[in-house]
Design a protein around this nucleic acid. Structure first.
Lengths: 241, 241
DNA sequence: AGCCGCCTCGCCATTTCTGGGGAGTTAAAA
DNA sequence: TTTTAACTCCCCAGAAATGGCGAGGCGGCT
């Protein structure tokens, strides 16, 4: 299609590293798609509450439909990568549910391609994103491709996420409010299923003291109740269970 | 020191990728240190609860002291990387507190080196680890080194973490007992801070019905109470907020 | 056709959590 | 040195969650 030959990878990466605007990410991802000669390449930041953000080469129609239908809830690529650290071929995901299969059929109709490979990326505070390459080809061709370029793709995913985090200032101020050791203890034990009485006993403090911790943690986390506080602490990576 | 010349990077990486035992990680990290001609190289998995795990070339004495004194709590490298996505030079971290400076002095006494560079890595369920290179040299030499090898170090960090996750079986056998759509709705809204009454109203069902969902979700998740259920659903990636 | 899972609704008693107060110590930071 | 932040303890009343009970309709799978 294009008269110009694909750009060299290191030049694209350098441009990506130096990017200072969102539009440059879009340019970079298009250059990368041409460089690797694949149908699509997408960076997709999945920010839990439902709001998403990203850039890539999927058609506007598909992106809109994806958002409208809240496909993020059933997309096996999202679900699968969320549990994994490794980059993963779409074939190895769980497409067994009916909803997933319908989703797959529709995606193919929108020219996403029958093959895909996604790299999960994670940042501070539970931030999560995907970098995906998709294409239309045979299984063996695709396997050769992913084998050959896995390292590059991991690095590229890393760079895109780095830039996305740089451009998204919203995530930073929340970081300031970390929890005190005692608060972390309290919230962690609550997340492990202990009742307040049990937590207090475990920590060797009175239940009243425990409540002070829970309340101050709730305040710091901007949570409306204990469940909310635990959920926020978890998804921000402040506690681990 | 060694008579043998350093191994080539891609050979070391290949060995790392194919590793099936912890001891191979230790071998790989020593080879990498020799390859890059630095004083130390360390992979350090920081598992929230306090237990740690890793491999690397720090002296046994330092590792033991680090664990004994629970330096993970005050180490600015840990604190700083936990909030960041980018790899970071130790000089750019916050060493202003008294405890941090004392820690730094002690680390230098144990021959860690005056320069350091750490790459944060994150896996599913809030897993967090660091890959660190440290050395004794001037600022400009160090800057040239980190500039030249940043990409390699990111990839190496990724591979080490991948292997560490593979070797850690605790994270895997999550019996993926999935939740019904309504249960997911209920647990998600609870995780977002809504009270039962609010969730019931939002979902247009009676509070009694809602309770059935919560209880069945609790049962499926093996949780002892609502907080526990929400925490489990979150850390298993069944819900996203 | 029958079983199973999912969705929906109801009541009562008990336990647990939450929101509003106040108060003292210690250790580190400004 | 003063201030700040973390840790500890206490009371009370009202709101919310929990445990255990039962019931019916709908849709898919065998």
């Amino acid at each position: 299609m294009n008269a110009a030959p694909p750009m060299r990878l290191d030049i694209i990466l350098e441009a990506l590293e130096g990017a200072s605007e969102l539009s440059e990410l879009q340019t970079a991802i298009e250059n990368l798609r041409d460089h690797f000669k694949v149908d699509h390449m997408v960076y997709h930041w999945v920010s839990g509450a439902g709001d998403q953000y990203g850039c890539g080469t999927y058609s506007k129609e598909w992106v809109q439909r994806y958002l409208e239908k809240e496909y993020v809830r059933i997309d096996p690529v999202i679900q699968g990568c969320y549990q994994r650290f490794h980059p993963v071929d779409w074939k190895r995901l769980d497409w067994s549910t009916k909803a997933a299969r319908a989703f797959q059929q529709e995606a193919i109709k929108y020219d996403i391609g029958n093959q895909g490979f996604s790299v999960p990326v994670r940042g501070p505070n539970g931030q999560f994103a995907l970098f995906t390459v998709s294409h239309h080809c045979d299984d063996d061709v695709w396997e050769a491709f992913t084998e050959a370029h896995r390292r590059d793709l991991i690095l590229i995913a890393h760079y895109f996420n780095q830039k996305a985090l740089d451009f998204e200032p919203d995530r930073k101020p929340e970081t300031a409010q970390s929890l005190s050791p005692r608060e972390i203890d309290a919230i962690t034990l609550l997340a492990m299923g202990y009742s307040r009485a049990q937590v207090a006993e475990t920590l060797n403090i009175s239940e009243h003291t425990l409540r002070v911790y829970i309340e101050s943690a709730r305040f710091k986390l901007g949570a409306m109740n204990t469940v909310h506080a635990v959920a926020r602490a978890l998804s921000r990576g402040l506690i681990v269970i």
